[in-house]
Design a protein around this nucleic acid. Structure first.
Lengths: 136, 136
DNA sequence: CTAGAGTTTGGACTTTGTCTAATTGCGGCA
DNA sequence: TGCCGCAATTAGACAAAGTCCAAACTCTAG
């Protein structure tokens, strides 16, 4: 499925999010590229033409999307969070030098031998991060 | 092996680190507990008695330890880095609500089906993080 | 047209971490 | 002992990411 600005309202509504102008722009920034973006990058993208959307709105909206399950958070870099429009189960390849983040499909990956969870706990998710760098 | 303040100088020297007063205190804070601590927690621990060690030194020293391979960095929380005195291969269980971080030994975990790395890249490490929370 | 809920906004604030220039402290040596 | 020089430490200014808040705006139902 290709995403256009016109898809966005429906996508938002289907996740129980009231589609406003700003929310559509932010969703479009993420879904049209299908890339991992930091809050800052989203902010820049959304405001390429004129400055339309405030920092507060960008953060509010990303957190709203997160909470509604529209996007995921990827924590690999000590000083910024990346937002990931891909919510299918998958893992990440992280180039520690360039900061580039790439998806690894979870389909063919199998993880065996995980210990049982502590009493009364549920698993929220498994993140697998493969850190790579240019060979020396 | 149990760690005491007296072990620390040797441990530091064996990693090519000049053992100073402050460095010994910082190493001791991490190794005597064998827990994951944030820079802030290290700072507090080290200064329980009187304020002896500055913020700059704590950060400098942790980064030095990191670079010399004495400790590892664990990135799971969007707004702080944890430092891990355990450098043996292992993974983490992260309680997203309390922020508690627990080790999972890597011995019995097997990960199959990883795709080949991109040309000219080497693997720096694999981080597996199991996020858990209290059952609803 | 108006009320009210929901949304957006600028800006002040907080937290984590870095940088810098000045100071301290310690080993070696006369 | 006194001095030199270097490594380590320091306080505090700064930077970047993110949160908070009260005021302003918008949109829709009546």
């Amino acid at each position: 499925m290709r995403y256009s600005r016109d898809n966005m309202a429906g996508l938002l509504r289907s996740h129980d999010i009231n589609p406003t102008h700003q929310r559509i722009e932010i969703a479009y920034a993420l879904f049209s590229r299908m890339e991992h973006l930091s809050a800052d990058q989203v902010m820049t993208q959304v405001n390429v033409h004129h400055s339309e959307t405030s920092k507060a709105t960008v953060y509010n909206t990303l957190n709203l999307f997160l909470q509604k399950g529209l996007i995921r958070e990827v924590i690999v870099d000590p000083n910024k969070v990346f937002y990931d429009p891909n919510t299918r189960p998958h893992h990440h390849l992280y180039d520690v030098e360039s900061g580039r983040l790439t998806d690894i499909d979870a389909e063919e990956i199998h993880i065996n031998g995980l210990p049982p969870l502590p009493e009364g706990m549920t698993m929220e998710g498994i993140d697998l991060i493969v850190r790579i760098r240019k060979a020396a």
